[in-house]
Design a protein around this nucleic acid. Structure first.
Lengths: 250, 250
DNA sequence: CGACATGTTGAACCTCATCAACCGACGTGG
DNA sequence: CCACGTCGGTTGATGAGGTTCAACATGTCG
């Protein structure tokens, strides 16, 4: 499965990096950056392949350069839940623990900038500003996870789907797409399948599909094709999502 | 609401601290400890009172010394979800952000060792070992949150309740109770109300109640009173909880 | 073209939320 | 002292929202 490639221009990789100014490494000083550069290695994974299995000893960690990574948990009987979707510039893996309880899979074709885990941990030890940044982004992830707990615990199917669309609209617009021009205000690409949506929302493919058509017939969204959504009025979608206030702009 | 008291023996508080060897401060060197001691202040909150409201600017952070703190999120229409339960030695609050999106409430009477937030942040900057430890425990919390996402997204009502009992059994036994002798193998106290259980499990009081009686009639649990549970065979409870393997011992 | 994956739609069933009544414990005030 | 309201918990009856199973549509790839 592990479809790997390596980019070997170790001298100046970071300069032209797509996520240079958004990922962890944005806080690295010039020397730290050079050091990161030395241990960095670009890997690519084709859609559907496993990046890190839950049994693996987690050989590496890294940042997503392009594509979408899903973190999943599965129960013994096969029921599974996606506990996180990671876009460009997001960090994958866990430092200071040699294996963890989810598995990371490529939801689309994925390109990552990876680091040997123990080497990366040594880096963190030497460069407090990096470790600090990792702490901050971990806190953000924790917030996001708890937001999702609210969704899973409280929201109706329609609210769930609407919330997910809001989530992707934001990530795909300012983050994941990364420079991808928006052809129309409120248009975005849905990078994952209906099945993945369902697994992330704690529901089934069928309900996701039904709710999408509901939103469609209510004229809250339109689809050009299966994976291209248009949201004419983000406010109406927010209402459908059951968002308290207009937390749209940050 | 804020029912406060202060213990003012700043000289040697930490020595006799209940959670000295389990909380963040366990990694503090003698000087860092002394400094922590200087900015520490014990506060108590009576059951039901708000510790930090979501609108507050989060004046302080701290460790739970005794009691149980719940982190809750509420939607505009009142639906609410508990996104975390914190026991003795757990850390409450968020550094590097002056307000956060949940509110912390005392589920029982609570005693906390608190620090002024900005002073605490300064401490973290000066003592990397503290910041490192905070990172590690944040990572653990993130794992816990994602475990709970699996529960909220996949599990049936019975599995939810059984899982919650397992959760409390473990925390109340090795952590929260802290020295409280277990009168019987597998006996523990339920520190929170049925309502809180429901809010944590993404269900209703009625279902919680029903599932408890189901577990009772199945002889998987017994109750001495409303808040004292006995689990004769933790394995059977684990099965009811839908736990993959025996992840009982860590 | 057929085979397969992905998504949509329909119909039946079932779990769980909802509404309501009830119970015991507790505290207050008459 | 008892009447009263309140609060936390349990139990019952009912129905809606979502799961499940199945058929169908669409798109893709050999």
């Amino acid at each position: 499965m592990h479809a790997l490639t390596k980019l070997d221009n170790p001298g100046r990789k970071c300069d032209q990096c797509l996520v240079r100014h958004r990922a962890l490494c944005r806080v690295a000083g010039t020397d730290a950056l050079a050091e990161l550069n030395r241990i960095a290695r670009t890997r690519t994974f084709s859609a559907g392949s496993t990046i890190i299995a839950s049994e693996d000893s987690m050989p590496f960690v890294g940042n997503v350069l392009s594509g979408v990574v899903k973190l999943t948990k599965v129960m013994a009987d096969g029921r599974q839940q996606i506990v996180g979707l990671l876009f460009a510039s997001d960090f994958v893996g866990r430092a200071f623990e040699d294996h963890w309880s989810y598995s990371a899979e490529a939801a689309t074709d994925v390109e990552m900038c990876t680091f040997d885990r123990t080497a990366f941990e040594r880096m963190l030890g030497k460069h407090p500003e990096l470790e600090h940044q990792l702490l901050v982004s971990t806190l953000d992830e924790l917030d996001a996870a708890r937001d999702w707990m609210l969704l899973l615990g409280c929201k109706s199917a329609e609210e769930k789907v609407a919330s997910f669309l809001m989530f992707v609209a934001r990530r795909a617009a300012n983050g994941g797409g990364c420079g991808e021009a928006l052809p129309e205000a409120g248009a975005f690409e849905m990078p994952v399948s209906r099945t993945d949506m369902a697994a992330y929302l704690g529901t089934t493919v069928e309900t996701v599909s039904r709710q999408i058509t509901r939103l469609k017939t209510a004229n809250i969204i339109r689809l050009t094709d299966m994976h291209h959504f248009i949201v004419p009025d983000i406010h109406r979608l927010a209402v459908a999502a059951g968002v308290d206030e207009v937390t749209l702009e940050d």
